[in-house]
Write a protein that binds this DNA or RNA. Structure first.
Lengths: 194, 194
DNA sequence: GAATTAAATCAACACCTGTTGACTTAGCCG
DNA sequence: CGGCTAAGTCAACAGGTGTTGATTTAATTC
């Protein structure tokens, strides 16, 4: 959090970034329809009109958060099929790795607003092109599509249950985290082989 | 669909049911915030005012759809742990069984509106009390809570991917359905044992 | 220092939201 | 038939939505 009341330099790219950051946090916790542009503007310390001006409207802002915020290879990191279960398991358990955390946040944002008519279209395109596509290609083989779907389903299910349904009890104490990670790794592996 | 323009008898319980049915279909396809009361009223062929009058508001209508529509033991059917994987597998593959279909629809409705502030609270209570609670009790043992969470996560993940993200490719031809069911059964079993 | 241009603000718009009160109508009972 | 009650309709409300044009303010350039 920065102190913006002292001085506010007139920097277009900075306020654009501030708006996008505020939108990211809002969309992370509420759905597309729930969030109002005035909420986001208030968080960013900016007038509402700037949002429609800079992003061309609410839909454009959401697209900027979902699509433009990531680097293009964010979901293409694992290079071998053997790496996949461990990669997904690390994704669902919370740790300090900032990049992984950001990646999981993108999934939550998508899950939150997937039901909205306008946001849903953006999200579905993104999921097919940038997540399911590379994943299917990496897995390969006859049933690669089914396997990719199952992996993503587990990932999203855990995400839904944790952050949206607010169900905990996945990992409590310190050493339970490691055990829980191993169980998830095993589950993702089962989705690939069984 | 019935032809209601011909004659419309004045039946309070019938119109109440019509409103609830229309709301069910709307909430099945859009989120709580997306759906407007005027949409539901239009589908039911009723004036908007009747909704607030009969259900005490939008929130009450949603609660009536989610909570009151089911019979209480809808999610307590399986009696043994061994039955669980098959039960969940049958739940996710579409078939003609009307009761199973209705049960899965309830999950989708919950998934769609879980992110809304008002609807989310209703849903979280329901999930904990009527789904996760009985499931944990049935599984039993030290890690029963974790197991129940994993099962529900897979179920919801598949639901999200299919109906909200509109991802198909789970089952194509006729005999693929049976094979797909078996794979899901295997996956749910893995969540219990691995 | 004045002119110019971009950045930020203000105010208002048209529209849609859920909800409520007053009103009208249909159906039943005596 | 006349009265009565419940069922349904109509209109309007207060509040909120995203968006846009005109305006003001700050920073840069000549």
């Amino acid at each position: 959090m920065e102190r913006e009341t002292v001085i506010k330099k007139r920097d277009a790219v900075a306020t654009r970034a501030a708006i996008r950051a505020a939108a990211h946090q809002r969309f992370l916790r509420e759905s597309y329809d729930s969030v109002g542009l005035r909420d986001i503007a208030g968080d960013a310390g900016v007038d509402v009109a700037l949002i429609s001006r800079y992003f061309g409207g609410k839909e454009g802002l959401f697209r900027a958060v979902v699509v433009d915020e990531k680097d293009p290879d964010l979901f293409r990191e694992p290079k071998t099929v053997a790496e996949l279960p461990g990669f997904f398991a690390q994704l669902v358990v919370e740790d300090e790795d900032e990049e992984r955390q950001h990646r999981m946040e993108m999934f939550i944002i998508m899950l939150r607003s997937a039901s909205s008519a306008k946001a849903g279209e953006i999200i579905r395109d993104f999921v097919h092109r940038d997540v399911l596509g590379p994943l299917t290609e990496l897995i390969g083989g006859d049933e690669s599509e089914l396997r990719a779907n199952m992996l993503l389903a587990i990932l999203m299910g855990i995400g839904v249950l944790r952050t949206i349904m607010m169900v905990d009890g996945f990992a409590g104490s310190e050493e339970e985290v490691a055990e829980c990670t191993e169980r998830f790794r095993c589950l993702f592996a089962a989705a690939l082989t069984c």
